[in-house]
Computed example of a mutant assay.
Amino acid sequence: MDTREKILQAALALYNQQGIRTITTRHIAAHLNISPGNLHYHFKHTDDIIRSLYGKLAEAFDAELQKTAALETVDMDTIGELSVRSFRLVFRYRFLFLHFVEIAWRIPWIREHYHGLTQRRTREFIRIFRRMIRSGVFRQDLPDKIWPALVKQLFIVADFWLSNNELTERLSEKKAMVAYKKTFYMMFLPFLNP
């Protein structure tokens, strides 16, 4: 693993443990036992590290969605598996989700990227949903305007469920994954064929 990747992995661990307000590039350098100058050779500012970690998360989510879209058959088991893999990513990059609004205001590039990303992913999910309608998983009697609203609900739960868990139930990662999957399934329930 090269120095840049080591910095990102150390930053991810520290941000997940202590949040973004207390961890500086000096903390990350000390954690890695390298000089701040060496760290700054790779990343000038803390925000550059956060932006890189966000980019890694976005790429990982893209890969998961592409895997799902490439499957011959997409059913509710497929959606359940995608939700579990998505939750694992959320938990791995949990500092981003727990501080997402603050990060998006602090780093405008992330806010703009996320906006474009949600538009693209909405189109991708709607294509998957249309396949599920054609295969008889979803009801065919619903208006098209329903599907973007469902995607928006999915984003809200996926992006902010971890914050809700922190403020309410405080479930462990394993129990949280079970609850998250159940919540996702319940959102799909009204759209399923009997």
Rank of each mutant, 00 (worst) to 15 (best):
S86N: 11
F125G: 08
F155Q: 13
D144W: 05
D62F: 05
S52A: 15
E112V: 09
S172K: 11
T46Y: 02
R85Q: 13
I133F: 00
R111Q: 11
P194V: 07
K182W: 07
L154Q: 07
Q18M: 04
P190E: 07
T73I: 13
A69D: 08
V84Q: 13
F188G: 02
R88Y: 09
G19W: 00
Y41D: 04
T3W: 04
I103G: 03
M177G: 13
E5L: 08
H113L: 01
L8R: 02
A11L: 07
R170A: 07
V84H: 11
L71V: 10
F95H: 00
I110F: 08
E166K: 12
Y15W: 00
D159I: 11
H99S: 09
L57R: 15
A179E: 13
Q9M: 14
L117F: 10
E102A: 05
I34F: 05
H99W: 06
V151E: 00
R134Q: 14
V137I: 11
K174Q: 12
P36E: 14
G55Q: 11
S172Y: 02
Y15I: 02
L32K: 11
T25V: 14
F191R: 05
K44I: 09
R92A: 07
V84F: 08
K56E: 14
A176W: 02
Q9A: 11
D75P: 08
S83E: 09
E169F: 06
F95S: 00
L162Q: 06
T25F: 01
H113G: 02
I23E: 00
K182R: 15
F87R: 07
Q153P: 00
L32R: 01
E59G: 15
W105N: 15
E81A: 15
T183S: 12
L96Y: 07
Y180E: 06
P194Q: 12
L189H: 08
H40W: 05
I128W: 01
F184Q: 14
T25L: 12
A29P: 10
D2C: 10
H27L: 00
Y15N: 00
L98E: 03
E5P: 04
T25S: 13
P143D: 08
R130A: 14
Q119A: 10
L12R: 11
W147S: 13
F129H: 04
E124L: 04
F43C: 14
V178Y: 07
R120H: 13
L154G: 13
Y114T: 10
F95P: 00
F97R: 01
G116S: 13
I28Y: 03
K145C: 05
R88M: 03
Y114A: 11
G19E: 05
K174C: 04
K67Y: 09
L57Q: 14
K56L: 12
A69C: 05
E173S: 01
H113M: 04
R21M: 11
T25K: 03
R134H: 08
K175P: 02
A11Y: 02
R121L: 08
Y180A: 05
R106A: 03
E124N: 07
